Lab assay of single mutants.
Amino acid sequence: MLSDEDFKAVFGMTRSAFANLPLWKQQNLKKEKGLF
C-alpha cells in the first residue's frame, strides 16, 4: 500500500480525487503505473 505522499507522487492527485474518478479511469491509471 502506498503512503499518501507516494500516492500523490505516483498519480499526481490525492486519494480523494482519485476515488472520485470513474472506476474504469482508476483501473487505467493503475495499469499505466504498473500497479494492477
Rank of each mutant, 00 (worst) to 15 (best):
G12H: 05
G34H: 09
R15M: 10
L35H: 12
K31T: 11
Q26M: 02
F36K: 10
S16C: 15
L2V: 06
F18S: 00
K25V: 14
L29W: 04
P22W: 02
F11I: 04
D6Q: 12
F18Q: 00
K33P: 04
G34R: 05
M13D: 01
K8A: 14
F36G: 11
D4M: 03
A19N: 14
K30M: 15
F7A: 00
E5M: 09
N20S: 14
D4W: 04
L35C: 08
A9S: 11
Q26L: 03
L23A: 10
G12V: 00
K33Y: 10
F7P: 00
L29P: 01
G34P: 05
D4S: 05
K8W: 13
Q26G: 00
K25P: 02
K8N: 11
N20R: 13
K30L: 15
V10S: 04
F36M: 13
S3I: 04
E5R: 07
S3G: 07
F18V: 00
E5N: 07
N20W: 04
F7S: 00
L23N: 06
N20I: 09
Q26N: 01
D6R: 09
L23K: 09
Q26T: 01
N20D: 13
N20C: 15
K30A: 15
K33V: 14
N28S: 14
S16I: 11
F7N: 00
S16T: 11
E32G: 06
L2G: 05
Q26H: 01
F11H: 02
R15L: 08
F7K: 01
E5H: 10
V10A: 07
K33H: 14
L23M: 12
A19E: 14
N20V: 10
L2I: 10
A17H: 08
Q27M: 13
K31I: 13
D4E: 10
K25G: 04
L2D: 07
E32R: 08
A9P: 02
K30Q: 14
F11N: 02
F36L: 13
D6I: 09
A17N: 05
L23P: 13
L29T: 03
K30G: 08
D6A: 12
W24P: 04
K25A: 11
L29G: 01
A19I: 09
W24I: 07
G12S: 02
K31S: 10
G12N: 06
L21W: 02
G34I: 07
A17L: 05
K25L: 14
M1L: 13
K33E: 04
L21K: 00
A9N: 12
S3Y: 04
N28R: 15
E5T: 08
W24N: 06
A9C: 13
Q27A: 13
T14S: 11
K33W: 06
L2C: 05
Q27V: 12
L21M: 06
F36W: 15
K8D: 07
Q27W: 11
A9D: 08
K31C: 08
M13H: 03
K8P: 04
S16A: 14
D4K: 02
L35F: 15
E5G: 06
N28F: 14
E5W: 06
Q27N: 14
A19M: 13
M1E: 14
R15K: 15
D6L: 09
E32L: 08
L35T: 08
K30N: 09
G34Q: 08
G12W: 02
A9G: 06
G12M: 04
K8F: 15
L2S: 04
N28E: 15
D4G: 03
D6T: 07
K25I: 12
A19T: 07
T14H: 04
K30C: 11
F36H: 11
Q26K: 03
K31V: 12
Q26F: 02
S16P: 08
K31W: 13
E32Y: 07
Q26I: 02
L21E: 03
S3W: 04
E32Q: 08
W24D: 09
M1D: 13
F11W: 05
M1G: 13
L23D: 07
L29N: 01
S3T: 12
L2Q: 06
L35A: 07
E5I: 08
L35R: 06
K31E: 10
F11T: 03
G34A: 08
R15Y: 08
F11S: 01
F18T: 15
A9K: 12
F18I: 01
E32F: 05
S3E: 06
E32W: 07
P22K: 01
D6P: 02
D6W: 14
R15S: 07
F7L: 02
F36T: 14
A19Y: 14
V10H: 08
L2M: 12
P22T: 03
A19R: 12
K30Y: 15
K25M: 14
L21R: 00
N28G: 08
K33N: 09
E5P: 05
F18M: 02
K33M: 13
M13S: 01
S3D: 10
F18W: 05
K31H: 11
K31A: 14
K33Q: 09
K30T: 11
F7V: 00
S16F: 11
L29R: 03
D6H: 09
V10G: 01
